[in-house]
Design a protein around this nucleic acid. Structure first.
Lengths: 152, 152
DNA sequence: TGTTTATAGTAGCAATTGCTATTATATGCA
DNA sequence: TGCATATAATAGCAATTGCTACTATAAACA
């Protein structure tokens, strides 16, 4: 019974990704790319390394994700004027529009996922899972206030 | 705020997998392989197709996972006497021992993940996430009683 | 029985990911 | 300043995954 929570969370997250991908297939971006764009929207001008940390992929993986998103006209790389090794990342207007357009879909998905739950239960779910995430997080050095939590 | 639950679940599940993989690195199997073995333990003699459904990967992916696990001496393929196209899968004694040995680790991980939660809160967490999973599940045709839920 | 259709599993290919090594640049320090 | 070390990003390679097509076998049915 004790692994249940790990199994359960993984199952549920996978179903979430699957539902997300099924609904946004025509937009041409995946759940992971969407994740990148959402984080980037809140951190315009971030470098690749820190963004890789945020979405928890390897820097090289992020580098290649950005290659594709830049080619698709959704992300722009600008040279960092203070460090010639680094790129600063920006969302293009097109990506903004895309995210806005997807907003309804993702809202509907969240609604569907929590169908039958009262507002209090939804709040409780988020609070409890949030505590589990907090327990599991390795990034203890990063103050909680710095972390992405709500309202994404 | 509405996507929070999707983000949160994915974050948490990822952290879970990461913690799992970090703790079981020396065992040589990944979280996904562990998942396969755990399901297989409860369904000895299952065919590849249904097991692929259970762990939600494509049949070809499962086929190759079984290739590797068979080579590692953890899973055994036996010909189905009633259908010469099919294989029946069995856990080897070695896999049983491996799972038993990992049990302590996974128990400890579940404990750590839910640290600070009361028994009531843990139960509530499981119940709420379980309802979300149920909402998201496409396999509506499969009666709930048939599905893997607890005690894994 | 013989033919059509469905099913179990696998091979080829392409896409994605991460490990390791490498390049270019910046920083620390004598 | 000049050299050693650290850092940002990327290329090469290997592993894994899934899509599509394929083979072998079973089931349905005329």
């Amino acid at each position: 019974m004790s692994e249940t929570i790990g199994f359960l969370l993984n199952d549920t997250a996978r179903l979430f990704r699957r539902a997300f991908n099924a609904r946004t297939r025509d937009s041409g971006i995946t759940a992971l790319q969407w994740r990148l764009l959402v984080y980037l929207r809140r951190h315009q001008g971030i470098r690749q390394g820190p963004l890789a940390d945020l979405i928890e992929v390897e820097p090289i993986t992020l580098s290649r994700m950005v290659d594709r998103l830049a080619e698709a006209g959704l992300v722009e790389r600008r040279a960092d004027p203070t460090d010639r090794r680094a790129w600063l990342l920006y969302l293009t207007p097109r990506a903004d529009a895309l995210l806005d357009g997807m907003r309804r879909t993702t809202d509907a998905l969240a609604e569907e996922a929590t169908e039958g739950l009262s507002d209090a239960e939804r709040a409780q779910l988020i609070a409890l899972v949030g505590r589990v995430r907090c327990n599991l997080s390795r990034r203890d050095a990063i103050p909680e206030s710095e972390r992405e939590k709500e309202a994404i």
